[in-house]
Design a protein around this nucleic acid. Structure first.
Lengths: 226, 226
DNA sequence: ACCTGAACACCGTTCAAGT
DNA sequence: ACCTGAACACCGTTCAAGT
């Protein structure tokens, strides 16, 4: 039945990373085990460890692989504000398509994928004339916001993988829970249940970016007038 | 040597959660294993599973325990803007003192601890007269920013636990790496190395909150004039 | 009801042995 | 140099058996 044929072509770090990304994308974070990789690549553990230091190294490389591709694909022509939105949305879409990245980005600080993100966000803010001394804080705030959304996204993908039903039904279930919360203890959540059910993640993400942009501009302008 | 005396008083869910928090705080996320808990509480696995559904349930409860305490301790008297800052800083300090919470908050969506956070942030924004229809997006953005910082914080704590040296030395090491980055590929990171070494996490966190507040006010005011 | 602790089904990682 | 796969040291969780 199952072919146990040994692979004929040589294994490589790139092949391993590619296979890892495919497992992560199709079957989720939990499905990526070293054993799953040996099966998919028709090889042994030692072969994997010959090309990759350990599982953490592999995840670092997989995340950077995806993020680096996204960050270089940014439209060059648009107006600065529009370009920042485009970069943010590209990141959001990539994280949406590969939710495991959301968890990975907060696993290891200053990993390659994060450096790519910081550099690109910094570039866009520079084009927006954010002054030098405000740069560090502005970029940090923006990236942390994106990482926060990314993390929540990964968490949502995780539960959706473990339960049946699509986004709409699982959102409806949460909204129903909110509606049943004690209005005395959680008046605002209780009231917001309907909005939660109907909200659009992508739209909401962009609304947050707009708040940031407005804040950055305001603080920047104030600094100019003083 | 090691006393193997069986515990005399009854075990309880509260005792288990308390012990878990202590292990997490003193020895880090990785140190919390079911086995470590049986040793600390002088009990067996079955006893733990009698009071707690599983490890995930335990972590949910531990995080909510800490967050709920923080969220109820908020100063009542201050001016709305000041109170929002106070809530944000309380959260930051709690996450700093218990960095494992940062990881936990993005493990399970809509967990109790997150509900507490959303409700409290919503309350502060309401006091700031954020209009109803802007509430959902504003609170979402703010909370996601906080969660992003929390996650990075947890990641930093994790590496600091696995390597020797305090915050200053590990920051210096990262800064040195940034300084060595190819200025052609990472011009902004390369330039920012010195700032990274000297930055204050808490101050930077608050700067991000200020950007948000400025953005929320600006967008709000614009909506009024239309 | 509450608890004990051996056993089970998994992990990531190592390493002697092969080509 | 590159690879195989048994073995090791761990996990979280279960469950028959005890009080």
């Amino acid at each position: 039945m199952a072919t146990k044929a040994r692979r004929t072509d040589a294994l490589s770090r790139e092949l391993i990373i590619e296979a890892a990304i495919q497992i992560l994308d199709t079957d989720g974070e939990d499905a990526l085990t070293l054993r799953a990789l040996t099966i998919r690549l028709s090889t042994g553990y030692g072969a994997l460890y010959h090309h990759v230091a350990n599982k953490s190294d592999l995840l670092l490389a997989a995340a950077d692989d995806v993020i680096a591709r996204v960050m270089t694909d940014v439209a060059e022509d648009a107006e600065p504000r529009e370009r920042l939105r485009a970069v943010a949305l590209s990141l959001f879409d990539a994280i949406n398509a590969h939710p495991w990245i959301g968890a990975q980005l907060s696993r290891e600080p200053w990993q390659p994928a994060l450096l790519e993100i910081y550099e690109s966000i910094g570039e866009q803010l520079e084009a927006l004339n954010v002054p030098e001394q405000a740069m560090f804080d502005s970029a940090g705030a923006l990236v942390n916001y994106i990482l926060g959304v990314a993390g929540q996204n990964a968490a949502n993908a995780r539960v959706r993988a473990h339960t049946e039903g699509d986004r709409t039904t699982s959102l409806a279930a949460i909204a129903a829970q909110w509606a049943q919360l004690d209005p005395g203890k959680y008046p605002r959540l209780h009231k917001t249940a309907a909005q939660l059910r109907e909200h659009d993640d992508r739209r909401q993400f962009l609304a947050g970016i707009e708040l940031f942009l407005a804040g950055i501009e305001t603080v920047h302008r104030k600094a100019e007038n003083h």
